[in-house]
């Protein structure tokens, strides 16, 4: 079932106010040729005009590697020696509203939010990765036990919708072999990087390279915090895809 009220404020979706907000946001996000696609996507967001204007979209310059706001390669990326991700891109700044909405989706289990979040990912895709010919979409898996407790993998719900929108197939390439604590419960950056070491293993079939011999994977997650989860996933995929593989990650929040 679709929402009929604004996900930002719970108020009415006033079409008249919304129209100008949609135009302005779509215009900022897309090149002139892609404007119609972007317009359709943005108009589909369940937000009123006021909240749409306040959507924390990262429009300025960003780190070419991880997508963090800033004008050059950020210090975190600078320090990474073995980068496994081609690049990461995210659409929104992770503010208080985003935190609440994402936890309603993920932890409370409000699966109806999947449509909204998937739309945000699709917007991010058109903004950043449209030119890349992906062979498949894959997601960061949950540990089997966590999946059983939670009942669903929030990112899988998004992947399914994205796949239908973009016509790129979803493949389960990974399983999670290590149970890791919730992000917020982990001590620090180093602890997180270490805990992600070897957390995943390969679950896909033999890699089918396409005609040009390359294998491009779109790796989805809800948020990029330190990137260690995504890099660990990418490492496992690369180990099987060989030198022709390239992994691009896309998240809603940064």
């Amino acid at each position: 079932m679709r929402y009929d009220t604004c996900l930002g404020c719970g108020g009415r979706l006033n079409e008249r106010v919304k129209e100008s907000a949609v135009r302005s946001l779509a215009g900022q996000l897309a090149s002139r040729t892609r404007y119609p696609v972007m317009y359709r996507l943005v108009a589909g967001l369940t937000l009123c005009g006021i909240c749409m204007n306040q959507l924390p979209v990262m429009l300025g310059p960003s780190c070419p590697q991880c997508g963090r706001e800033g004008s050059q390669l950020c210090s975190d990326c600078h320090n990474i020696t073995a980068e496994t991700l081609q690049s990461n891109r995210s659409l929104l700044r992770y503010n208080e509203w985003g935190k609440n909405l994402l936890s309603t989706f993920k932890y409370r289990g409000e699966e109806r939010l999947a449509d909204f979040f998937a739309k945000l990912l699709t917007i991010a895709f058109y903004r950043y990765y449209e030119a890349i010919a992906f062979d498949c979409i894959t997601t960061v898996p949950l540990h089997a036990q966590r999946l059983q407790e939670r009942g669903f993998n929030q990112v899988d719900l998004l992947a399914k919708r994205l796949s239908a929108d973009l016509g790129i197939p979803v493949r389960s390439l990974l399983v999670r072999t290590k149970m890791t604590a919730q992000l917020s419960k982990q001590a620090g950056r180093t602890a997180r990087v270490e805990s992600m070491e070897g957390a995943f293993s390969w679950a896909g079939e033999r890699v089918q390279k396409n005609v040009s011999g390359s294998y491009r994977v779109l790796l989805l997650d809800d948020i990029y915090t330190t990137g260690s989860t995504l890099r660990s996933c990418a490492k496992t995929i690369l180990a099987h895809a060989g030198p022709h593989g390239s992994i691009y990650s896309l998240t809603i929040y940064r």
């Binding site: 079932m1 409370r108 289990g109 409000e110 699966e111 109806r112 999946l147 059983q148 407790e149 939670r150 009942g151 669903f152 993998n153």
Partner: peptide, 27 residues
Amino acid sequence: AKDIEYTVCHSCGQGCAYCTVCLGMGR
């Protein structure tokens, strides 16, 4: 009726659904 949302559930592996109205107090 419309306040109950169907879900593909990995907890029970069966046809399942959850309540969207009292969701704030646990699924």
